[in-house]
Design a protein around this nucleic acid. Structure first.
Lengths: 193, 193
DNA sequence: ACCTGAACACCGTTCAAGT
DNA sequence: ACCTGAACACCGTTCAAGT
């Protein structure tokens, strides 16, 4: 019974969720699939190919046209979907950012963002650059959000005021920080019109 | 003659510049330093510790207070310095984003950003969240900017219009895309006042 | 033709043995 | 006390040999 692609990807995601991206190895994946060591390369190509396939899978559904409505609301929906998609897998954002996939799901996500902005009246080049900027913000945010933080020293009373505020910022609810940052970007985008 | 920390870090950066982050191994570093295999762990701790030290080094100077002037210009200066710092090493942004350093250079960069915004009149929590959002954009941008892109199919005439525009966006000058995205964010930040 | 597992050339890290 | 190199438990990938 040959290994089926969905089985391989599911097993890979389980491994990454369980142990993190850095612990994910092709050999562990083969073991989990009760397959010999070299089988992955035979069916799938190298380890990087597996990661790229997972990245593309993560983007499933992100680029479906959001419900009709104001362009800014539709763009916000897209940004939230992208964040959700990346959060759907441990180290998902880091994985995504270490690939450069040009497969349907990934392309559609960018395409849909551009379409929303062009329909709203933006010239295509500005639409593209805007979608890109938003994507960079979301990816950067979720990478940080998913990265394990070293336990901060409990006693910051020796530090200056600003460093304490910085520590408070980092430990604040990431969902609210995301909303805030996305709001800034959206306010800037509105000014393009 | 014991290995000196600056020598270790310089050799590590040379290796990463030459072969990329994924090819960087503690053993190659030891070989480059003409040191035995286990020496790194003895002097420095594990491979991740070397990467964190490099990340902290990359941030040197970023957080120096920018020249006096309008707050938005000072913030832009900070963003440019951060981008430059990350571009200073192959895969620098990916390296930086896979660490969570709480050392002087890195903390100072965040602190200075907050200070600029607080002096401009923003409450500390908004200042922190704003700096964070800007950092996420910059890091996300440079990760993409530094990532090797697969050669796109030369002939996109079969693709639809939007996909062609998307391809044009990705291949556009990254410095100009950066300026554009940073401008969006700044326009949003100005609306906070 | 398709599959596989043994083998190759590596890893990071530890720790007994040396100085 | 400080250093080191041999050894351990892994890697990703290839490719001869099998079916």
């Amino acid at each position: 019974m040959p290994l089926r692609r969905p089985d391989i990807l599911r097993a890979a995601r389980e491994l990454i969720d369980a142990e993190g991206l850095d612990e994910f190895t092709a050999r562990k994946l083969a073991t989990a699939l009760k397959a010999p060591a070299g089988e992955l390369q035979w069916y799938f190509g190298d380890r990087q190919a597996v990661l790229e396939a997972i990245a593309e899978d993560l983007m499933a559904g992100v680029g479906e046209p959001p419900p009709a409505g104001p362009w800014d609301q539709r763009l916000i929906t897209l940004a939230h979907r992208l964040r959700r998609a990346l959060l759907g897998l441990r180290d998902g954002a880091r994985l995504f950012s270490s690939t450069f996939v040009t497969e349907p799901n990934t392309l559609l996500a960018g395409r849909t963002g551009m379409q929303i902005l062009i329909e709203a009246g933006l010239p295509p080049d500005q639409a593209g650059w805007t979608v890109m900027a938003m994507t960079h913000f979301v990816v950067g945010h979720v990478i940080e959000e998913q990265s394990p933080r070293p336990e901060l020293p409990a006693d910051l009373s020796g530090e200056d005021e600003l460093i304490r505020e910085l520590a408070a910022t980092v430990t604040a609810d990431p969902a609210r920080r995301f909303e805030f940052g996305l709001g800034l970007l959206l306010d800037g985008i509105r000014r393009l019109f």
